[in-house]
């Protein structure tokens, strides 16, 4: 068994364990929020009969571990229970909203990679003036929280200029894209600045490394030196940070979703938490944890493919 397979299997085991622990934490955190009766009864003061009925329907009188077990086995089979508020199956509630969040995140990722990595490359390679300009821009970008950017964008591009819609997610491919542009920008600004900085410093470290001197003195064309030695060696570092950032976007998107009135899982989570809609809170939280863990593992895997020596023990000969 080679190191890569061993790493993969180890990663998979760790992933499952993380998810199991996360499910326990999420389930117990939700229990701590108190008796769900009020939320289930829908505001009116419940009669004792109604309470008994609800307790029976939601198995509230079973021991905790048994309820957890049923919730978990149900979840594995795709049954996450029903929303306390909407009374529909949680999965049908979450699926379309997840699609919107996914689209928003994908668009944001494109923006982050193009502008973040792009400006990082420019800063590292195009002389001091460009480096300074990018440094100033990224300082500004890091200082602007997502909701501030969102308000500015709405005010300038939606209200004053009227180029983009203020609210909603639109229908059809182009309309949807048009609706998602401003939210994606507001979400991306901070991370573009961050990835730009990371890219620049990773590249500068490689540009000054001795093996790049070797390539230069051998007359290797500049493009090739940059691609095969500088960028390639810097990429595991950039990728590791980008992986964590992108994974975190699914949670961070809540701010943009709320600001732009997008019906994604972020805004769903915010609403569900406000209304104590526990099954929804549980599934969305678990989904966010899963995405975070899986994407991080994927980033590590790609890093390992680029840099075989990064795998623990791989450098030992």
């Amino acid at each position: 068994m080679n190191t890569l397979t061993r790493m993969l299997l180890g990663r998979l085991g760790g992933l499952l364990l993380t998810l199991l622990l996360a499910s326990i934490v999420i389930y117990s955190a939700v229990l701590l929020t108190g008796d769900p009766i009020a939320a289930l009864a829908g505001g009116a003061k419940p009669t004792p009969e109604l309470i008994a009925e609800i307790r029976a329907e939601y198995h509230l009188d079973d021991p905790v571990w048994q309820r957890y077990w049923e919730w978990l086995t149900g979840a594995i089979q795709g049954d996450f229970g029903r929303s306390f508020v909407y009374k529909t199956a949680v999965t049908t509630l979450v699926a379309p909203r997840f699609a919107i969040t996914l689209q928003l995140v994908l668009l944001t990722v494109v923006l982050i990679l193009v502008f973040g990595v792009g400006s990082g490359i420019l800063a590292a390679t195009r002389g001091r003036a460009v480096d300074r300009a990018v440094a100033t821009a990224t300082s500004l970008g890091m200082a602007l929280p997502t909701f501030v950017v969102a308000i500015l964008l709405i005010w300038i591009f939606a209200k004053s200029l009227g180029w983009f819609p203020v609210y909603g997610e639109g229908d059809g491919v182009w309309d949807r894209l048009w609706h998602l542009v401003l939210p994606a920008i507001s979400l991306a600004v901070l991370f573009i600045a961050y990835i730009s900085r990371v890219t620049r410093s990773a590249l500068v470290a490689q540009l000054h490394s001795e093996h790049v001197d070797t390539a230069k003195v051998r007359g290797i064309p500049r493009r090739r030196v940059f691609g095969a030695h500088v960028f390639r060696n810097a990429s595991p570092q950039i990728l590791a940070i980008a992986g964590t950032t992108i994974a975190g976007l699914f949670a961070a998107s809540a701010i943009a979703e709320v600001a732009f009135g997008l019906g994604g899982i972020g805004s769903l989570l915010v609403q569900a938490a406000a209304r104590a809609d526990l099954p929804v809170v549980q599934i969305v939280s678990l989904l966010l944890v899963t995405i975070f863990v899986v994407l991080n593992a994927a980033a590590d895997l790609v890093s390992a493919l680029i840099d075989p020596t990064s795998v623990e023990g791989g450098a030992l000969a």
Binding site: E210, H211, T214, A215, P221, R224, N233, D307, T309
Partner: peptide, 24 residues
């Protein structure tokens, strides 16, 4: 002076040996 620092750690010896021949 330090061959270990002057060779790209991510590329094989073969890559290094042939790079100038192929690309120059």
């Amino acid at each position: 002076q330090t061959p270990r620092a002057h060779l790209n750690p991510l590329r094989t010896i073969g890559d290094f040996m042939t790079e100038a021949l192929v690309h120059v």
